[in-house]
Design a binder for these strands. Structure first.
Lengths: 211, 211
DNA sequence: ATGTGTGAAGAGCTTCACAGCC
DNA sequence: GGCTGTGAAGCTCTTCACACAT
């Protein structure tokens, strides 16, 4: 098992497991079974066991999983033992909402830098984070050891911004534009595309519309 | 082919196809091949042909697809021939960003109603949309024939809000909370979970971190 | 008795490759 | 020649079911 390729879906589920384990840990639970986790996360217990098995044998047969141990192991796999440093590019409506989103710290992410190209915004602060000139992005991002960039720029600038940042050595991007970019294979871009999600919902909706 | 079940992934790709076709149509292109679309959307041409084939034979062998016809057919499949009416619940940071997001109209969605429970916000307007009392949600949503609700409430209220709205007959939700809810099967909730996406990016990132 | 770990079977989606039509 | 439509093959992920450990 150990040397099989790990499904992307398995990786996607690790963070939800982690959230549940943080919660269980805070409540003082020492042991959790795949069945219990299944009910909390709404994920089939066979999937949970198989997901963990990709990384080793984390549980005890007949008993279950040790909550703090399992939590530590998942944190390590996801490289979330320390805060992940995140930079935000673009402080329009979405960017400002993200800067004000106070859940990130409790989830292990910290926005340490924000950038914009608008001289009227540069120098001001949102939620205690200074907005810097995008011109200084390279130096500041390297200085701060930022690992992930959230790109919340207007659609027609996103591609340019991601290309620029990838040249600075950033290889992980969360974008809010529908982006089909030509980028090196080692660069990973996740697009949060609200319209596509709404379109899927429209397709699956069974609501009868009177016209 | 016609009676096979349609993969979710196929549905996910229809909107990106539609975007590309709108663009081609505006440029006056009459014909497009799966190869050309492939380059625009960055999706393998065999997938594109198969995706369309689930809904019928849309192209001409040796020629390609008629752009306006194909566009109309995809619009119809996605039920996006008319504006889809959307309601927003919660006008915090994310909610306000969504109300200000001016791309929705051009993509076929219209936010027609916004709700909050905060008496200080009720009555004010954002981007021309009035914030209404959540107490009036049932009547107003039914009156307006809203089909999809975007739920941008604090995490601990999301479940309650979605349950309430599903009782009003809404069956399609876009949520910004990590939500594992017990809901009837016919209700579809899509969660935009930024932290989980960041966690995946952290896992796949190869950036060396000096500590 | 309880609950994990995992081969094997099954389901779902993608890619191939080519017949069929323009 | 060019391009679609699609069975068949291939790949990926999920579910089953049970051996194994406590």
């Amino acid at each position: 098992m150990r040397f099989k390729t790990i499904p992307d879906e398995t990786i996607s589920r690790l963070f939800p497991y982690m959230r549940a384990l943080v919660c269980l840990n805070e409540k003082g639970a020492e042991i959790v079974s795949s069945n219990r986790l299944s009910k909390i996360c709404m994920i089939n217990s066979a999937i949970i066991r198989k997901d963990f098995s990709y990384f080793g044998e984390f549980g005890k047969r007949g008993v279950g999983y040790n909550v703090p141990e399992l939590l530590a192991k998942i944190r390590k796999i996801l490289k979330l033992e320390e805060y992940k440093k995140v930079a935000l590019i673009g402080t329009g409506n979405i960017g400002r909402a993200i800067l004000s989103y106070n859940y990130f710290p409790s989830e292990g992410f910290k926005i340490v830098l924000a950038f914009d190209k608008d001289v009227n915004k540069i120098g001001s602060e949102i939620n205690g984070i200074r907005i810097n000139d995008i011109q200084n992005a390279q130096r500041m991002i390297l200085d701060q050891n930022v690992e992930i960039c959230i790109v919340a720029t207007p659609v027609d600038e996103t591609s340019k911004v991601i290309n620029m940042l990838s040249e600075f050595g950033i290889d992980a991007f969360l974008s809010f534009s529908p982006c089909r970019l030509n980028l090196p294979d080692n660069v990973k871009v996740t697009c949060m595309d609200l319209s596509t999600e709404l379109a899927k919902l429209a397709y699956y909706s069974n609501k009868e519309i009177e016209n």
